[in-house]
Design a protein around this nucleic acid. Structure first.
Length: 529
RNA sequence: GCGCCCGUAGCUCAGGGGAUAGAGCGAGAGACUUCUAAUCUCGAGGCCGCAGGUUCGAAUCCUGCCGGGCGCACCA
């Protein structure tokens, strides 16, 4: 697939190779902040100076000569200590526009890499209550990362791990039963309203054994969770049960596998995994002295299962309160004989709502469903990934429901609706034309818009690589701003056919770009607002 | 004490070695006879936590310190 920036990049790289005899350092081809420094600039001459033992400006002069001969560039200038500033010509913009429209929804997409099977496990909240806003961040972030990886060439499976074994689900079952029978909720149990709802809906006789309350109660809770995630456009391919890992013998098998690797020892009546062999702070218990397994034992079996099923890369999306698990999970994988580089943990920081921290003990829990009911799915998904996952996130509920340019999600969606509106009007009034208007000389606002659009392949690639969907948000907002300015300055349905063709093409490319970008965030791109 | 994340404009945050550090919100001044003013334009606002180091060049990389958050179970 043709990509205008890559083509420019390749041409400069070839020129550099000619100078060094083959070696090409990082070009650092970028958009300068100052427009006087051209459309694109590279600092490669300064990087080359120590390698070639020559003056940077001298190297820059020679490279500039080679770049000038490309034809699609208008001017090439040397500035400062040895920057090469490139200004692109009208033909380059026309070529770029043609390339984008030809690629359509696939502009910037990379074909699947054979042999790569990425497993993204996320949310995986205990099925003992509705998902909280923290899980909402997990869901929005994890799903956007999954979409990014798919777009950039990885085959991705989304998986939810159901913690349906152990004390907590037992307490949950007891809580459901207590709600139905009108008894007190047990110590440490679950008092939430959703428990009462489940108690009422559950097809279980009052005198059923506890076992049944647990099993059926959890099943119904999982269904509630699945539905709430689906409502915000997060769908999982696999739902894996922790209980199932025990019943299928996977836990025992994983321990045997670790034993065969020589990583198991017995001490104080318990069975341990020697994770300190691989950098963990302390060794971890798998089977307690009382014969019960630990949670980590199922984790180990689950890692084993993921790789046995054929995953080549296992990604975990965890809240900051679980960051202590990183080393343990990697060491666990290593104890089973797997490469720890194939285990990746993505940690997102905590979330506040309109400046307030949420917490069960604080008594101000906001659920995922309450959030989407309050601000809508589009705003929720947009705001939940607006900031870097490394950053604590505050969602301003008042701003999120504002229907004005103050609200970034409306601002971006409105840009899309405007594009659609213009294209609709062109079609309705018979003003649509073929081609991209080759005789039209683009003006400043058009050039700015096209430069932005051409950045996309680079933006999406780095967002995927850094697991940083917030970079898609930033770029999308900038694109919307460039489009609104373009729309304000220039009339699209111009009487001159070439001008109209060019501008309509730019609008079409913008509309597609917004739809593509918002799609990776799980945000809709409305045609009318 | 140890580990992870953060510290950039009044507020919320972008900036993964480059030129004069950006955006949104807030506060200020303007712009609609044409495709949605749900928009645009302009100015104000900064010891990039502090101190060293690496580099031709550091908000960015390294070290130390200060401040804030989150973790350090034979719990789940």
């Amino acid at each position: 697939m043709s990509d205008p920036i890559s083509d420019l990049h390749a041409a400069i790289a070839a020129a550099v190779a000619g100078l060094t005899g083959g070696e090409v350092p990082e070009l650092a081809l970028e958009r300068p902040a100052n427009p006087e420094h051209g459309d694109y600039a590279t600092s490669v001459a300064m990087r080359l100076a120590p390698v070639l033992s020559r003056k940077p400006r001298e190297i820059a002069e020679e490279l500039a000569e080679a770049i000038r001969s490309l034809g699609t560039v208008e001017t090439v200038e040397i500035a400062g200590p040895g920057f090469i500033n490139i200004r692109l010509g009208a033909q380059w913009y026309r070529d770029a526009l043609s390339d984008m429209l030809a690629a359509g929804p696939d502009f910037g997409r990379r074909p699947f890499t054979p042999g790569v099977e990425t497993l993204v496990e996320f949310v995986s909240s205990n099925p003992t209550g509705d998902l909280t806003i923290g899980s909402a961040r997990n869901a929005a972030y994890g799903d956007s990362v999954a979409r990014l990886l798919e777009f950039t060439g990885e085959r991705v499976t989304r998986e939810y791990y159901i913690n349906d074994a152990g004390n907590q689900v037992g307490l949950f079952g007891q809580s459901v039963q207590a709600r139905r029978l009108g008894n007190d909720i047990p110590e440490g149990g679950y008092p939430g309203d959703e428990v009462a709802v489940i108690a009422a809906e559950l097809d279980v006789p009052d005198d059923a054994p506890l076992e049944e309350w647990v099993t059926k109660g959890v099943a119904l809770m999982v269904e509630r969770i699945r539905a709430s995630l689906a409502s915000m456009r997060v769908e999982f391919d696999l739902w894996t049960s922790e209980l199932g890992l025990h019943e299928s013998g996977a836990v025992v098998a994983a321990i045997d596998r670790a034993r065969a690797q020589g990583r198991i020892f017995e001490q104080d009546g318990a069975t341990w995994l020697r994770t300190t062999d691989f950098g963990d702070d302390k060794d971890r218990v798998l089977l307690k002295a009382d014969g019960e397994h630990t949670y980590f034992a199922s984790d180990l079996a689950y890692i084993d299962l993921k790789f046995q099923r054929g995953a080549t890369h296992a990604i975990y999306v965890l809240g900051a309160d679980h960051h202590g698990y990183i080393q343990r999970l990697k060491a666990g994988a290593q104890c089973l004989g797997y490469d720890p580089a194939h285990v990746e943990t993505l940690i997102y920081q905590l979330i506040t709502v309109s400046g307030e921290r949420m917490g069960k003990r604080r008594g101000n829990v906001i659920t995922l469903t309450e959030l989407t009911d309050a601000i809508g799915v589009d705003a929720a998904r947009y705001f939940l990934v607006q900031r870097s996952h490394d950053q604590t996130l505050d969602i301003d509920l008042d701003l999120a429901v504002e229907t004005s340019s103050k609200n970034p999600v409306y601002y971006v969606q409105y840009a899309h609706a405007r594009c659609a509106s213009i294209l609709r009007k062109a079609a309705d009034e018979g003003l649509a034309v073929d081609g991209i208007g080759s005789a039209h000389t683009p003006e400043a606002a058009e050039l700015a818009l096209l430069r932005r659009l051409a950045e996309w392949p680079e933006v999406v690639a780095s967002a995927a690589e850094l697991r940083a969907p917030h970079r898609i948000i930033s770029w999308t907002h900038e694109l919307a701003a460039d489009f609104h300015a373009f729309h304000h300055d220039l009339f699209v349905l111009h009487e001159d056919v070439d001008t109209r063709a060019f501008r309509l093409s730019a609008v079409r490319a913008t509309r597609e770009a917004l739809e593509r970008a918002l799609g990776l965030l799980g945000v809709s791109a409305p045609d009318r607002m």
